[in-house]
Design a protein around this nucleic acid. Structure first.
Lengths: 215, 215
DNA sequence: GGCAAATTTTACCATTTGGTAAAGACACGA
DNA sequence: TCGTGTCTTTACCAAATGGTAAAATTTGCC
């Protein structure tokens, strides 16, 4: 496979050489449009026509770059996985425990604000039973999750943090941060004219996890 | 409108009289099948044929009881709203603050375990921008939310709980509890052979909100 | 400029899907 | 048991949708 931007890329003709500038540009446009459409309407709700129009290309042209709707979705999901796991990868066993976790929370919250489409794409996939991503959860997410749980468990055993189940701790970090992207519609209705916005959530979550984890 | 089981019910012929036993039974079957299918595949991903087969009825027969796919979905959402809001309604301003909130958390967590289909139906609707439920959020959820925020704020002002933004507190309760239903696929992959199951989450969340809210 | 390869468009097609019309089967009170 | 209104089935349809074939156009290299 050719590797473009660190991502495996199948060329339209199936061969394996350097993609032209046009290919890079158009594949990029398609993936961006698909992210927009898939995250808004879900896999089944999204149509190739919508993606094509959003990308500014014709439908057959899109199928020149990708083998089908499913391949676009899978490509998006694969690309996303890396971005999504990155904040957890960054969690440093050698750093200060509380500081590390708080900055992990912060990074996840920033992602909910800056990449809401990605968050919703991911949420929609999991919500429907991860039909196109189950394997990735097993092979990519799970080992990382277990590694970092062990790190946190260590910190707790050494008395740097409250004794808790690290697995549920991580779940609660994911849940509380992604909530602001995945349930944005609801949040907006309920926070209507709040000037604090993102800051309000950041302050609250910092307090929450500080109080929870400070021994 | 006729009222059946406390829910407004439009009869097939549009008139307004007592529905037969057959009607009650079949409308029930259809709604249950639709809950199953919609929660699994989302609105667009669900087909009338799937719902019909799950319900054990023919497609035209389903359209004898409901005006169309959208009406089934809306009926489900309307019914759900009441169930969904109930635990928050129950939050008693005269009860013990911490106890009240902890048992609210517990009720929500029990719902995530006992009504995962409902949780996912709701999550899917919000995730896509609440196209069929926006008005209900404004008219039903919002007033209740604001009322209960005021109750919690009072408790805080009287020194019974840590001073926090009650709105984000409620968000974090929703997020952490519903996570176990909406992201069940992921949770299952990561907790694979955990004997604790539901209890693990209950213990963790009790600790979390106790430590957070105890002044 | 000329030419091969890459890209895009036009014109389709088959399947799926929400929905309808109308005939047939059934329930139930008189 | 008969007839009326309720319920169910059969046979469709039009639109939407994922996808294809092949002609037309553009790009980039000599």
């Amino acid at each position: 496979m050719a590797v473009i931007n660190g991502v495996e890329t199948r060329l339209p003709d199936g061969t394996d050489k350097k993609p032209s500038r046009i290919q890079q540009r158009n594949r990029g446009r398609i993936l961006d449009a698909a992210l927009e459409v898939f995250s808004q309407h879900g896999y089944r709700g999204a149509t190739l026509d919508q993606i094509a129009e959003t990308a500014g290309l014709s439908k057959p042209n899109i199928l020149y770059y990708f083998d089908g709707k499913a391949e676009i979705h899978v490509t998006l999901l694969n690309q996303l996985m890396e971005t999504w796991l990155d904040p957890l990868v960054t969690l440093d066993p050698k750093g200060d425990p509380l500081e590390e976790i708080l900055s992990y929370v912060q990074r996840k919250l920033d992602m909910a604000r800056d990449l809401p489409r990605e968050s919703r794409l991911f949420a929609g996939e999991i919500l429907q039973g991860a039909p196109r991503m189950g394997p990735h959860l097993q092979s990519d997410l799970r080992p990382l999750f277990e590694e970092k749980c062990a790190v946190i468990q260590n910190w707790m055993d050494q008395g740097h943090l409250t004794q808790l189940d690290p697995r549920h701790l991580i779940f609660s970090i994911w849940a509380t941060t992604q909530h602001y992207a995945d349930f944005a519609t609801q949040v907006q209705v309920l926070l209507q004219d709040d000037p604090a916005g993102h800051e309000g959530a950041a302050t609250y979550l910092t307090t929450l996890f500080t109080r929870l984890l400070t021994p």
